[in-house]
C-alpha cells in the first residue's frame, strides 16, 4: 500500500510537470512532441507497465483493506466518532473516485493516443493536443477533473504521511517535517494539475 502509493506520488510529479507544456502557446507542438517521446521511449514503456501494475495493485489492496476493516466492527456506534481526520476515514471512497477518474482519463487520452484516429500537427506528430483541448473545452469535463483533483488532494493529505508511518518512519525530529511537506505536496500537486484544464477552458471561452 505505502510503497505503491509513494511510487504513484513520484509519477504524479513527472506527469504534472510534463503536462505543463499544455500552457505553452505554440498550438501544441511541444506537447505533441512530448507525447510522442513518452510513447516511444523503451525506458518510459517499462516504467509505464510498472505504473499500470502499481495502480491496479494499490486499488485492489486498498479496496480489500477498506472492506475487511469495515468488517472488523459488525455492530456500529449510534453516536459517531470524529477523533480522526475526514480524509483518513474516507480513503476507500476517495480512492474509488480516483479509480473512476483514472478509467475515464485513460479512455480520453491514453486510449486515443494509442488506438484512436487522431490528425497530425504541423510537425507531423499525432495531434493529442487538439484532443486535450476538445475535452477541456467542455465545462462538465473540467468540473469532473476539479472534483477528482480535490479527491486526490484529500487522499494525499492523509496518504503521504501515512505511508511514512506504515514503513516505520516516525521520528520526533523528522515526522513534523514529513507531515508539513506531505500536506504541501497534497495541495500543490492537485492545484498545479487543475491549472491545465482551467487554462484551456478559459482560453476556449474567449
Amino acid at each position: 500500500m505505502s510503497l505503491s502509493g509513494l511510487f504513484l506520488c513520484t509519477f504524479l510529479i513527472t506527469h504534472m510537470a510534463g503536462n505543463m507544456q499544455l500552457l505553452i502557446n505554440d498550438g501544441g507542438l511541444a506537447f505533441n512532441q512530448y507525447a510522442y517521446d513518452m510513447t516511444h521511449s523503451p525506458i518510459i514503456k517499462t516504467v509505464s507497465y510498472l505504473l499500470y501494475f502499481s495502480i491496479l495493485l494499490h486499488a485492489v489492496q486498498g479496496l480489500v483493506l477498506a472492506y475487511a476493516n469495515r468488517g472488523a466492527r459488525k455492530s456500529r456506534y449510534a453516536s459517531g466518532n470524529k477523533s480522526s481526520s475526514f480524509a483518513s476515514r474516507n480513503m476507500g471512497i476517495l480512492g474509488s473516485i480516483l479509480l473512476l477518474f483514472i478509467v475515464v482519463h485513460m479512455k480520453s487520452f491514453w486510449f486515443e493516443m494509442h488506438w484512436g484516429t487522431i490528425g497530425n500537427d504541423a510537425n507531423g506528430m499525432r495531434d493529442l493536443y487538439s484532443v486535450v483541448v476538445a475535452a477541456f473545452s467542455q465545462w462538465w469535463y473540467v468540473l469532473f477533473y476539479i472534483v477528482s483533483l480535490a479527491a486526490l488532494a484529500f487522499h494525499l493529505l492523509h496518504g503521504v504521511q501515512s505511508a511514512f508511518q506504515t514503513v516505520g518512519v516516525n521520528h520526533s525530529k523528522y515526522t513534523p517535517i514529513i507531515k508539513a511537506v506531505g500536506s504541501i505536496f497534497a495541495i500543490a500537486v492537485p492545484a498545479l494539475f487543475a491549472i491545465q484544464p482551467l487554462y484551456i477552458l478559459f482560453k476556449t471561452l474567449q
Binding site: 483493506l65 475487511a68 476493516n69 468488517g71 472488523a72 466492527r73 466518532n81 477523533s83 480522526s84 481526520s85 483518513s88 476515514r89 480513503m91 492523509h158 504521511q161 501515512s162 508511518q165 506504515t166
Partner: peptide, 11 residues
C-alpha cells in the same frame, strides 16, 4: 483475534 488493520488515522 479479528482486529482490523491499521490505516494510521490516529484516532
Amino acid at each position: 483475534e479479528g482486529f482490523g488493520a491499521c490505516t494510521n488515522t490516529g484516532a
